[in-house]
Design a protein around this nucleic acid. Sequence first.
DNA 1: AACACAATTGCGAATTGTTCGCAAGTGTTA
DNA 2: TAACACTTGCGAACAATTCGCAATTGTGTT
Lengths: 125, 125
Amino acid sequence: MEKLKKQLVKAGYKMTAPRIAVLEELSVSRHPISVRNLHKKIKAVNRASVYRTLNLLEESHLVNVEVIGKEKLYCLANVPHHHIICKQCGYMEEIKCNHNFGYFKNFSNIHHQLTLTGVCNKCAK
Amino acid sequence: MEKLKKQLVKAGYKMTAPRIAVLEELSVSRHPISVRNLHKKIKAVNRASVYRTLNLLEESHLVNVEVIGKEKLYCLANVPHHHIICKQCGYMEEIKCNHNFGYFKNFSNIHHQLTLTGVCNKCAK
DNA sequence: AACACAATTGCGAATTGTTCGCAAGTGTTA
DNA sequence: TAACACTTGCGAACAATTCGCAATTGTGTT
């Protein structure tokens, strides 16, 4: 959390209350979360500011976005990881990320986003 | 293309003109494409129908969705592949997919979506 | 500790993206 | 070619996201 703040400051951003609130909520919520739900948790922060904060966090690669069905979910990127998600019930497991995609000749500064979906055993009956 | 149609039919859907138009446009466009641009190319098809078609194609796993910056892009999933995209100019290379994520004990029917972003050599100057 | 200034916020309105309800139209199967 | 369920187009509704701007706030400087 402190590390996150430092990264933001280093990226040239001010540490304001709304930004801290967003970071803390992302840090507290164990799972990727939608803007709607994130905002529900921190109503003191204006919705537009939630969007603005998420956008700058994304540009700084401090959060990842993934699309599950019709939802766009945000998640801290501090520890490299991905998720596998059950499409029916939303059950989710975390996956350690040990992927390396740095070998593309024509690109630098490469980031990746992996999303796995499936049906969990419980839903499969 | 014919194969695509057959898959749709097998999934229980009718082969209507709007659906064929969407499939053909996806098949023609070499790159992942936004709803907006897709619809621009096939104005004869109502926007709502474009959405409906993309949704059912996605549910049938015939297309993949990925988020690049603020854009949601759709792409045929007939041949397993991914993309690496330059965030600055949009230059894009295709990546063969030889990934296997079938080994998760708690899930079945697993699909994955991998998105790579970076800066292409030209933009990096 | 107060200042100054640019960065950021909150607000509401505007814009854009997506879905809905329903009457009319169309593919498929017999 | 008749029948029926599935689809479409349309416009309105709804949801997501951004914008413009005045007011506020962090931060570096005195």
